[in-house]
């Protein structure tokens, strides 16, 4: 019988200037969504941007979630790893991840990719650099 993998379902993947978690309400806010940037010259070091994602609970006890920024040549330029441990009564999880001092070496289409174990792609978002 083939093994059935259960991956968390991605409900949202958003690239933005900043994410903010209100400790009083537990609610996330997203500041300044964008899908592209125009920089004066390349290579360029971008000081900071954020990625927000929301996942619906999987059947696993925990999931290892990779969030990578992939350059147009297919190589990762920034990487983040989060271990999500699912509480019994959790329905999902939200995360705001800061990417700092990211190097954009060239113009083109960069991919923000959210993957689970084994490289299973949960969601992708592109950033077009001009």
């Amino acid at each position: 019988m083939p093994r059935i993998d259960h991956f968390p379902k991605c409900l949202a993947l958003i690239v933005c200037q900043k994410t903010d978690l209100d400790p009083q309400t537990g609610q996330w806010s997203i500041i300044g969504t964008f899908a592209g940037m125009t920089l004066e010259k390349y290579p360029a070091m971008y000081p900071e941007f954020h990625v927000y994602y929301a996942l619906a609970k999987s059947d696993n006890i925990q999931d290892v979630i990779h969030l990578d920024v992939i350059a147009p040549d297919g190589k990762p330029t920034s990487q983040n790893l989060t271990v999500v441990k699912w509480d019994h009564d959790a329905e999902g999880v939200e995360q705001g991840v800061a990417f700092r001092e990211v190097i954009f070496r060239t113009v083109g289409k960069y991919i923000v990719r959210l993957t689970a174990e084994g490289g299973h792609i949960l969601a992708e978002r592109s950033i077009t650099m001009d």
Partner: peptide
């Protein structure tokens, strides 16, 4: 559709960026 979000308020800035406030489930 890489994002579908339910929240309290959304504001579009003069630079045409979008601010999403208070996400809810």
């Amino acid at each position: 559709c890489p994002a579908l979000i339910i929240c309290q308020k959304i504001q579009t800035t003069p630079q045409r960026l979008i601010n999403i406030g208070g996400m809810m489930n």
